[in-house]
Each structure stands twice: as structure tokens, then as C-alpha cells.
């Protein structure tokens, strides 16, 4: 028994290394692709920074006319905007292109080739491309967060920062699980691109302080169905010490698990009824 569990662990380790090597190859591919269009690469970073600046400008204007939104002060909200931008950009870097390209793979029938490869198809579909510019934008979000932390006189310890990052990862994964689920709709109706871009509207909700929403349908939907009010609020509240109870963290992690289960079920059901096209 001891020997068999030992060999199973060994096999698991080998599998992990294989997928890590594969992901490395996909990364190199993306770098080569991006460097083919250098001006474009820089211009896109500029566009994203412009939009980020817009959101901060919005908050700056609002706080000209009020001292607080519910319990949130100005720099706490700036921190929130920074964190949600960070989460959104990491999500964009790793997953966004892949989610929005899924409908194209289905429409052209190129998914056939990916299904045939001896690799987990969801892994390949989800990680095919990396958007490197988004990492630069994520860095700009970190800069804003550090500035906001200075303004708030925060000096978080290493444990707090690590916990914050772990919760951010949970947030990124929630975005991924949900958008991937939306993208699988393309197996049923081919024109799903619009649906994927519709998800962009949800990011707006993730940027807002949860305290602004009184209990009601809106708050319930965006906490327990599409947990937008958790993904960036919970990590920031942990960082600035606004958490009302550790239950909020448990809720975020719990919702991440729920989203994973539903997303995986949706993907499996979709692939099962895939009937190729064009080839």
C-alpha cells in the first residue's frame, strides 16, 4: 500500500511537471506573437491605463462632494479600485483571450484538433494565449494600491499581504469560472462573442464598495449568484481592516468552489454535445 501511494504521488508529480513545461511553451509562443506588433502592444497598455485613470478620476470627483460612501473613505475606495483593477488585469492576462476565443474554436471546428491531443482539453483551451500587456497594467494597479496604503497609513505584515494575494487569486478564478461558463454557451448558439463581452459590465460592479448596497435583490444576486461584490471587496477589507467577520472570507472561498463546480459541469455537458463543424 505504501509503495502504491508512493508511485501515485510520483505520477502526480510527473503530470504536474509535464503541464508546467507545456504552459512554458505556450508562454514563449505568446511572447513571440506579441513582439511581432510592438507599437500595438504599447498602445494597448496606454488605453488600459487611460481607463484605469478614468475610474480613479470618477472617485476623486465623487469625493469632492462627500466624505464617505457608506463607511468607506476616499483612499479605501481608491484601494478597492486598485485591487479590482489588479484582479481584472491578472484575469485578462491569463484567461480573457482564451475565453473569448472559445466560440471561434467551435465555429471553425478547430476544437477537433485540441480534443485529439493527449492533454486535458480544458487546460489547453483555457491557457492557450497569454496577454502580456495586462501584466504591465496589473503592475500599475499595484502602484496605485501602494500609494493608497501610504495615504491610509497601512503597514500590513507579510502574512496579511500573502492572505490578500491568496484572496485575489480566488477572485481571479471566480471571474475565470464564470466567464468560461458563459463562453461555453457558444456550443449551443454559435454567436456567443457578445455574451462574453457582456461580462465586462460585471467588472463595474466589482469596483464598488459593498457598503453602498443595502440588502435587497441586487446585493443578493451579486453576492450569492454572481459574487462580484465579494471578489475585490473581501481582499481589500482584509487589508484595510474592515472585515466584519471571518465569515466573509469563507463566503468568498466557498463561492469560488461553487463557481468551479458549476463551470466544470457546464463545460462537460457542452463538450458532450459538441458535433464539430466544417471539417
Amino acid at each position: 500500500m505504501n509503495a502504491s501511494s508512493h508511485s501515485r504521488a510520483f505520477a502526480g508529480w510527473g503530470l504536474l511537471r509535464r503541464y508546467a513545461r507545456l504552459y512554458g511553451a505556450l508562454w514563449r509562443n505568446s511572447v513571440v506573437r506579441e513582439m511581432g506588433f510592438k507599437t500595438n502592444f504599447v498602445l494597448w497598455i496606454f488605453v488600459e491605463m487611460l481607463w484605469f485613470a478614468l475610474q480613479i478620476a470618477f472617485i476623486a470627483v465623487i469625493y469632492q462632494h462627500t466624505d464617505r460612501i457608506a463607511t468607506w473613505s476616499k483612499w479605501q475606495v481608491v484601494m478597492l479600485i486598485g485591487a479590482s483593477h489588479f484582479i481584472q488585469q491578472v484575469f485578462t492576462a491569463v484567461f480573457l483571450l482564451n475565453c473569448s476565443n472559445l466560440s471561434e474554436l467551435v465555429r471553425t471546428g478547430r476544437l477537433d484538433f485540441l480534443l485529439l491531443l493527449p492533454i486535458n482539453t480544458r487546460f489547453l483551451v483555457s491557457f492557450r494565449q497569454v496577454d502580456l500587456g495586462a501584466f504591465v497594467n496589473a503592475a500599475s494597479a499595484v502602484a496605485v494600491m501602494i500609494y493608497a496604503a501610504r495615504q491610509l497609513d497601512l503597514e500590513p505584515g507579510i502574512v496579511q499581504v500573502l492572505a490578500f494575494l491568496a484572496l485575489c487569486v480566488a477572485g481571479v478564478l471566480i471571474h475565470y469560472f464564470l466567464m468560461f461558463l458563459l463562453a461555453t454557451i457558444c456550443f449551443w448558439t454559435v454567436r456567443a462573442q457578445g455574451i462574453v463581452w457582456g461580462y465586462y459590465n460585471l467588472f463595474t460592479v466589482a469596483r464598488l464598495p459593498d457598503g453602498a448596497f443595502r440588502p435587497g435583490v441586487f446585493k443578493t444576486v451579486f453576492t450569492l449568484a454572481l459574487p462580484m461584490l465579494l471578489v475585490s471587496n473581501v481582499p481589500v477589507k482584509l487589508l484595510v481592516g474592515m472585515l466584519e467577520s471571518p465569515l466573509e472570507i469563507a463566503l468568498l472561498l466557498g463561492m469560488a468552489c461553487v463557481c468551479f463546480v458549476i463551470s466544470e459541469a457546464g463545460w462537460r455537458a457542452s463538450v458532450r454535445q459538441y458535433t464539430s463543424a466544417g471539417s
Binding site: I62, H65, T66, D67, A212, R214
Partner: peptide, 9 residues
């Protein structure tokens, strides 16, 4: 909702 919260504050 955000503006409502601001007016309420």
C-alpha cells in the same frame, strides 16, 4: 445605488 448611498451618507 452608489449615488443613493452617497445621498444617504
Amino acid at each position: 445605488y452608489l449615488w443613493r448611498a452617497i445621498f444617504a451618507s
